[in-house]
């Protein structure tokens, strides 16, 4: 493991609870942290560990486990290493402390996550203003339970004349239609 990452993680371990440390590359590590500690951890990373570049905030919907995985990707631009902090939050009434005060662009990510996944970030500027989906009246569409295909079938109409045959079924109908009789 990269020495910067190692030192950073050692320094973090004394202050925060780190779980499931997974080294993906020499310069990229994934760490799971507790929801309550995340904001103070990010602040610490920015102010004391030189992870000043906030790369992105993403979310993964683990619907089967009933959790959202928030992934905060932080970068140390001097040492060229990344640490991704994973934070598992309840899927039901999902809510997370806002980090908009730490980096200016975070508010945009949080606004998008509220719109696309229904994750609330209380206090984040304009977080409830629609970002991309003005006039959307269905559930947040990036949630796994939202079925795009069904939505499109209900909303739009198919082009007539499209019909495809399965080779196996077609051969059965043509060559041995009585097999199951």
């Amino acid at each position: 493991m990269n020495t910067t990452i190692e030192e950073t993680l050692t320094s973090l371990e004394s202050r925060f609870e780190l779980k499931d440390i997974k080294q993906q590359r020499g310069d990229l590590v994934f760490v799971t942290v507790k929801k309550e500690q995340l904001i103070s951890l990010l602040t610490h990373m920015r102010d004391n560990e030189n992870f000043t570049h906030f790369v992105m905030l993403s979310v993964v919907d683990w619907i089967e486990d009933g959790v959202f995985q928030l992934s905060y990707i932080l970068n140390n631009p001097e040492k060229h290493v990344d640490i991704v902090f994973r934070c598992m939050i309840e899927r039901e009434n999902a809510s997370m402390e806002s980090a908009h005060h730490l980096w200016k662009q975070v508010a945009t990510y949080q606004r998008e996550l509220y719109e696309m996944y229904g994750i609330d970030f209380p206090g984040s500027p304009r977080v409830h203003e629609s970002f991309i989906l003005e006039g959307w009246d269905d559930i947040p569409p990036m949630r796994r339970e939202f079925d795009t295909k069904k939505y499109s079938e209900d909303t739009y109409f198919p082009r007539p004349g499209r019909e495809s045959k399965d080779p196996k079924e077609h051969m059965k109908n043509k060559l041995y239609p009585d097999a199951d009789k």
């Binding site: 499209r162 045959k165 399965d166 080779p167 077609h170």
Partner: peptide, 10 residues
């Protein structure tokens, strides 16, 4: 789409 054509036999 996979469609039946007159000139090709199954």
């Amino acid at each position: 789409d996979m469609v039946e054509v007159a000139t090709v036999e199954t």
